[in-house]
Design a protein around this nucleic acid. Structure first.
Lengths: 156, 156
DNA sequence: GTTGAAAGGGTTGCTGT
DNA sequence: ACAGCAACCCTTTCAAC
């Protein structure tokens, strides 16, 4: 594959640490992985240029923002030509409540993860927005009773 | 709710910017939201202390690490007493390939999002790990054909 | 790879509004 | 409350080796 790169154990240690916490200083990071700060910094710059590091983001606490309700919505489409699917996918990008979207194998066409503040709030989003997305035939919703695990750390 | 706090428009602008990119300097951030860097920095510290800001993480590109295959696994449990569920949930935390886990309403008990490198890799994870998690009766897997959207930004 | 030094930005306190 | 300023210190960044 043209988009894979050879990573040594230093790179992996750096990536594992940075996935967990982007706030490590070069000195801390170097000490943790067994390098001095300069090669550590050079490796990070290389990993950024290669596109392996996508960026640093701040994670917020959903509960404290009254966004503690996650819903998985399963979408069946009326049409399956490329233009119809693209119209749906573009519209999904514009909905901030939809934080994840996958086209799926199996009976349903898409799986959406939607973040809202309450069941009532979801009902509004569902009836005023989701069912009106382009070419949607039906929406089947499953509420998350509990978020058991959520991590942005990839298993490297 | 004791864990919700009053946020003004400055706080929201700061949070929106930091969710998108944690690398903004105080000067940039202040300019973007209409504050000077000192009050901007103080607000961030307050938001961290209140737990609204959970932390900063580095996001990696799954494809470049050969982790481009996402699978949603639906779990049915053999037992539903609290101890059995807790045993399962604890075991899930220890599986780095499982990046999300929700207990769900509906027929299935849990929904897992699993990140792997290939379909073959998933088969191994499924047969050697997932089906042997505590109190699992059955696992039903759906492959993501395409990741249409993924964001860590909450809709604030 | 290392050491070390310059430049930049984060952090704090103070004054004034 | 915020702006502005000054100072310190840590971190990033880039030499030179």
């Amino acid at each position: 594959m043209s988009d894979t790169f050879a990573l040594d154990e230093f790179d992996r240690k750096i990536l594992r640490a940075l996935q967990e916490n982007a706030d490590y200083s070069m000195a801390e990071l170097g000490e943790a992985v067994g390098l001095s700060h300069t090669p550590c910094w050079r490796r990070i710059k290389r990993l950024e240029k290669e596109g392996i590091i996508q960026g640093r983001v701040t994670l917020l606490n959903p509960e404290s923002l009254s966004l503690g309700v996650s819903v998985h919505a399963y979408i069946t489409m009326t049409k399956h030509d490329e233009a119809s699917l693209t119209a749906f996918e573009d519209a999904v990008q514009e909905m901030p409540e939809v934080v994840e979207c996958y086209s799926t194998s199996g009976e349903k066409d898409y799986l959406l993860k939607v973040v809202v503040g309450s069941v009532d709030h979801y009902e509004t989003v569902l009836k005023t927005r989701l069912v009106h997305l382009p070419n949607v035939a039906s929406v089947n919703s499953t509420f998350a009773l509990k978020q058991v695990k959520f991590t942005t750390q990839l298993p490297i």
